[in-house]
C-alpha cells in the first residue's frame, strides 16, 4: 500500500521530530530556569550570589548554599580520589582482563545504589559514627555529607579512571618495560602522565555527579543555611543547593520571590554542574584521542 519511499520519509521525519523534542527540552529547561530566576536577580542583584543571609520573605543570600555545595563536593572528591586512583591502577594494570571485567561490573552495580539507600545509611550509621569518632556534639555536618558523597561517587570515579588508564596504548608500556622499568614504575612514569586528560575528565564528571545529589545529602548535612564559623570548620552543619531545594521548594512552588530565589539557586547549580560535565567530556575526549 505504502511505497518504501514514503515510509522512509515518514521515518526520517518521525526520528527528526522526536530527536528535536528531546534536545529542545534541555534548551527549554535552561531558558525556563533563567526566566524563573530573573526576578530574584532584579531584586537582589549580585547580592543574591554573595549574600550570606537567607530568610524567606526577608532576604535571599545564596552564598552559604553555593559554598556548601562546592566544599562538600570538593571534599567528597578529595576523599574518594586516592582510593579511586589506587583501585584504577590495580584494576587496569595488574588484573587479568577477566578479573578486570568482574571488578568493573561490580563498580557499575555499586554506582547504581539508590541515593535514598545511602541516605538511610547516613542517618542510621554514618552520622552517629562521625559524632562518636570525632567527639562532636552532633553528627549531622558538612563533613558527614562529604564522606557519604565520597562513598557514593567512588564507583563512578574508579570506573572512569580505569577507562582512562586502559585507554593508554599498550605500546607505551611495552617500550617502558623493554627499557627495564618495572610495571609499577611504568605506571608512574608513562601510563599516568599519558592518561592525565582522561583522569581529569573523570574528576570533573565525578564532581558534577556529586554536586547534584539531593536526598542522601539532605538527610545528613544539618540543613542550616549559614556559613560555618570559621568557614573551614566542616564539622559544623551547613546546606547544599540540592538539599535546600529539596527542603524548601514544595512550600514555594510556582510563584513569588521565594520561588524565584530557589530557581536562582537551581540556575547556579545547573551552571556549575554543566560546566563540570562539559569540561569532563572534553577532557575525556582528549584522553581518548591521545
Amino acid at each position: 500500500m505504502f511505497q518504501p519511499r514514503s515510509i522512509a520519509i515518514f521515518f526520517r521525519v518521525l526520528v527528526t521530530v522526536l530527536a528535536l523534542t528531546a534536545t529542545g527540552l534541555i534548551v527549554l529547561f535552561f531558558l525556563f530556569l533563567v526566566k524563573e530566576s530573573l526576578p530574584v536577580f532584579q531584586a537582589e542583584g549580585v547580592g543574591f550570589l554573595t549574600g550570606r543571609d537567607w530568610w524567606a520573605g526577608e532576604s535571599y543570600g545564596a552564598w552559604p548554599m553555593i559554598f556548601g555545595s562546592a566544599i562538600v563536593t570538593l571534599l567528597a572528591l578529595g576523599l574518594a580520589l586516592p582510593f579511586a586512583l589506587a583501585g584504577a591502577v590495580v584494576a587496569s594494570e595488574f588484573l587479568s582482563s577477566r578479573l578486570r571485567w568482574w571488578a568493573k561490573s561490580l563498580m557499575e552495580l555499586f554506582a547504581g545504589v539508590p541515593g535514598i539507600v545511602y541516605g538511610l545509611l547516613g542517618v542510621g550509621v554514618l552520622a552517629p559514627a562521625v559524632k562518636e569518632f570525632f567527639g562532636l556534639i552532633d553528627g549531622n555536618t558538612l563533613f558527614t555529607a562529604a564522606l557519604l558523597l565520597g562513598i557514593m561517587v567512588l564507583p563512578t570515579l574508579l570506573t572512569l579512571a580505569d577507562d582512562a588508564l586502559h585507554a593508554v596504548p599498550g605500546k607505551f608500556r611495552d617500550q617502558a618495560q623493554s627499557l627495564g622499568l618495572s610495571r609499577l614504575r611504568t605506571v608512574w612514569a608513562v601510563v599516568l602522565p599519558q592518561a592525565k586528560a582522561g583522569l581529569l575528565g573523570a574528576v570533573f564528571l565525578g564532581l558534577g555527579r556529586a554536586m547534584g545529589e539531593t536526598i542522601a545529602v539532605m538527610l545528613v548535612i544539618g540543613g542550616r543555611d549559614r556559613m560555618p564559623a570559621p568557614w573551614y570548620n566542616l564539622f559544623q552543619p551547613g546546606q547544599s543547593i540540592p538539599s535546600k531545594l529539596g527542603r524548601e521548594a514544595a512550600e514555594a512552588v510556582g510563584a513569588g520571590l521565594q520561588w524565584n530565589a530557589l530557581m536562582g539557586l537551581g540556575l547556579m547549580l545547573f551552571l556549575m554542574v554543566l560546566g563540570m560535565t562539559v569540561a569532563g567530556h572534553l577532557f575525556l575526549k582528549r584522553g581518548r584521542a591521545a
Binding site: 552520622a127 556534639i137 552532633d138 549531622n140 544539618g222 542550616r224 543555611d225
Partner: peptide, 20 residues
C-alpha cells in the same frame, strides 16, 4: 540553632539521637 529539621518525626529522631 545548630540543626534545622522538617517534620515532627525528623526533629524527634534528631533529638533522640543526641544526648544534649
Amino acid at each position: 540553632a545548630r540543626l534545622v529539621t522538617g517534620s515532627n518525626n525528623e526533629e524527634q529522631a534528631k533529638i533522640a539521637a543526641s544526648d544534649a
